[in-house]
Amino acid sequence: MEFLSEYLGFLARTATLVVAVLIVLAGIASLRAKGRRKGGGQLQVTRLNDFYKGLRERLESALFDKDALKRLRKEQSRDEKAKRKARAKAKTTETKGRVYVLDFDGDIKASANESLRHEVTALLTLATPRDEVVLRLESGGGMVHSYGLASSQLARIRQAGVPLTVCVDKVAASGGYMMACIGEKILSAPFAVLGSIGVVAQLPNLHRLLRNHDVDVELHTAGEYKRTLTVFGENTEKGREKFQEDLDVTHKLFKNFVVHYRPQLNIDEVATGEVWLGVSALERKLVDEIKTSDEYLAERARAADVFHLHYAERKSLPERVGLAASGALEHGFARAWSKLTAARFW
């Protein structure tokens, strides 16, 4: 019993020490996280030419034997030296154009705009009309004001005279297409979904349910149209008409925005809220070419220096854990939803 008592005391002291160390470490981590947040995020730059070269060299190493690979490397080195000599002989000071690659994976709030705005600001400090910006876009749309701001970031590139190419591999609909149409060139995968040039809004109304249970809801406003439709109050025909009028005005602005950047479109034909797959979108001039982003960037890497830009916000450990949990829930919901709606597409 004496031994057991001493042993339990030892465990208690050890546990106390461990907890104290963890508290200290958590405090240090919190202070470091605060210090990092003061500096914001960080721009990450990756040279995609090196990535593609690494893929090719890895495949060559697997396909060729040692002697053949050695000869191949010598030939490649000789060709590279010849190109350098030719450039030196021509006494040209021109450098290869640069291609800046951005990614935008849009949710309903266009949250990726927080990174996009910094990426655009950074590249515009160096980009010239000889360069190109390629945006790999994926979005089914969302809030009007959020996607309006994201579109304004892309408009900055056009205003600076830098060519903008938008690649759509999966979907660019509604607010996503609002962003895509700013590109001087839009490339689409064959089965990407594009269009949905329309506006939608819906909300439930619980007024009758509450009235049946003798629940009153009072809503006080100043201004005739401060509130048109409500969730709990009684909606009027006048409020519905005003709500629809606001939707029509937004739709008109949306159409005018698209026409400004793609005047070749028959806007009355495509601004019906419908979506089309890549090939059909090409027929309607919603896109300019059927090609995946991988194919296009691999081609550009042969003639230009290609850089991928990503502005990453520094996040604390609790924030990272929360984002991971949120991402898992979102992924699970997306999988369930895709199963429920699979028949719609096939």
Rank of each mutant, 00 (worst) to 15 (best):
M1T: 14
S5H: 12
T14I: 11
V21T: 13
R32Q: 15
E57W: 04
E57Y: 03
S61C: 07
A68D: 09
L69I: 08
L72M: 09
A82S: 11
A82C: 09
A86D: 08
R87N: 15
K89C: 10
G97T: 05
Y100C: 00
S111C: 06
P129V: 06
V133H: 06
E138Y: 08
E138W: 08
G142I: 03
M143I: 07
Y147I: 02
A150P: 05
I157E: 01
R158Q: 03
K170R: 10
G175I: 03
G176N: 04
C181Q: 07
K185L: 05
A192P: 01
A192M: 00
G195E: 04
S196R: 07
Q202F: 10
R208N: 08
R211N: 09
G223V: 12
E224F: 12
Y225L: 11
K226S: 14
F232V: 08
K238W: 09
R240D: 10
E241C: 09
E241K: 14
D246K: 09
D246A: 09
D246E: 15
T250N: 11
T250A: 14
Y261F: 01
D268F: 00
G278P: 02
R284V: 00
D288V: 01
I290C: 02
Y296H: 04
A303W: 05
D305H: 02
L309T: 00
H310Q: 09
E313I: 12
E319T: 09
E330L: 12
H331D: 11
F333K: 12
A336D: 11
W337F: 11
L340Q: 13
R344C: 11
F345A: 11
